[in-house]
Lab assay of single mutants.
Amino acid sequence: AVSDRLIGRKSVVMEAISPQNSGLVKVDGETWRATSGTVLDVGEEVSVKAIEGVKLVVEKLE
């Protein structure tokens, strides 16, 4: 599936994300709604860990 190619990809937070609120990330020039178990600020680099419905699950790059 097209979405499977996103797992493991680097992306950049475009709208802040917290455990309570989804935000936005940009992956390969496309904007996606995303969630995370931690707070992520605009501009942080993250990695796509999973896809749940139409949202990406991301975490901060170490």
Rank of each mutant, 00 (worst) to 15 (best):
1 A>W: 11
2 V>N: 13
2 V>G: 13
2 V>L: 14
2 V>W: 13
3 S>A: 13
3 S>Q: 10
4 D>A: 11
4 D>H: 15
5 R>T: 09
5 R>V: 07
5 R>K: 10
6 L>R: 04
6 L>I: 06
6 L>K: 05
6 L>D: 05
7 I>K: 05
7 I>Y: 03
7 I>P: 05
7 I>Q: 03
8 G>S: 03
8 G>W: 00
8 G>L: 03
8 G>D: 06
9 R>L: 12
9 R>T: 08
9 R>D: 07
10 K>D: 09
10 K>T: 14
10 K>G: 07
11 S>L: 09
11 S>I: 07
11 S>W: 04
11 S>K: 02
12 V>K: 06
12 V>D: 04
13 V>E: 02
13 V>I: 04
13 V>D: 02
14 M>G: 02
14 M>S: 07
14 M>W: 08
15 E>F: 06
15 E>Q: 13
15 E>M: 12
15 E>D: 05
16 A>Y: 08
16 A>T: 09
16 A>S: 09
17 I>W: 02
17 I>H: 02
17 I>R: 00
17 I>L: 04
17 I>T: 04
18 S>R: 07
18 S>V: 06
18 S>L: 05
19 P>A: 06
19 P>G: 06
20 Q>G: 14
20 Q>E: 12
20 Q>T: 13
21 N>V: 14
21 N>I: 12
21 N>E: 10
21 N>S: 13
21 N>M: 12
21 N>G: 09
22 S>H: 09
22 S>W: 10
23 G>N: 01
24 L>D: 00
25 V>A: 03
25 V>K: 00
26 K>Y: 14
26 K>R: 12
27 V>Q: 02
27 V>D: 02
27 V>I: 15
27 V>G: 01
28 D>S: 07
28 D>A: 07
28 D>Y: 05
29 G>I: 05
30 E>R: 09
31 T>S: 07
31 T>W: 10
31 T>K: 07
31 T>F: 14
32 W>R: 03
32 W>M: 05
32 W>V: 02
33 R>E: 14
33 R>D: 08
33 R>S: 12
33 R>Y: 10
34 A>P: 01
34 A>K: 01
34 A>M: 00
34 A>N: 04
34 A>H: 01
34 A>I: 00
34 A>G: 04
35 T>S: 08
36 S>D: 03
36 S>M: 00
36 S>I: 00
36 S>Q: 01
37 G>L: 13
37 G>K: 13
37 G>V: 11
37 G>T: 14
37 G>H: 14
37 G>F: 13
38 T>H: 13
38 T>R: 07
39 V>Y: 15
39 V>C: 14
39 V>N: 13
39 V>W: 14
39 V>H: 14
41 D>V: 12
41 D>C: 14
41 D>W: 11
41 D>G: 11
42 V>F: 04
42 V>E: 06
43 G>A: 03
43 G>E: 03
43 G>I: 01
43 G>C: 08
44 E>Q: 09
45 E>V: 15
45 E>P: 06
45 E>Q: 10
45 E>F: 13
46 V>P: 04
46 V>F: 00
46 V>D: 02
47 S>T: 15
47 S>E: 13
47 S>R: 15
47 S>G: 07
47 S>L: 15
47 S>K: 14
48 V>T: 02
48 V>I: 14
48 V>C: 04
48 V>R: 00
49 K>W: 07
50 A>Y: 07
50 A>N: 06
50 A>I: 04
51 I>P: 00
51 I>C: 06
51 I>H: 05
52 E>K: 09
52 E>T: 08
52 E>C: 14
53 G>Y: 04
54 V>P: 10
54 V>I: 12
54 V>N: 15
54 V>F: 14
54 V>L: 14
55 K>S: 15
55 K>F: 15
55 K>N: 14
55 K>C: 15
55 K>W: 15
55 K>Y: 15
55 K>R: 13
55 K>A: 13
55 K>G: 10
56 L>I: 05
56 L>P: 02
56 L>N: 00
57 V>L: 08
57 V>Y: 10
57 V>E: 05
57 V>W: 09
57 V>F: 08
58 V>M: 03
58 V>H: 01
59 E>A: 10
59 E>Q: 08
59 E>L: 05
59 E>H: 07
60 K>P: 10
61 L>I: 13
61 L>F: 10
61 L>M: 10
62 E>M: 12
62 E>V: 13
62 E>K: 11
62 E>P: 12
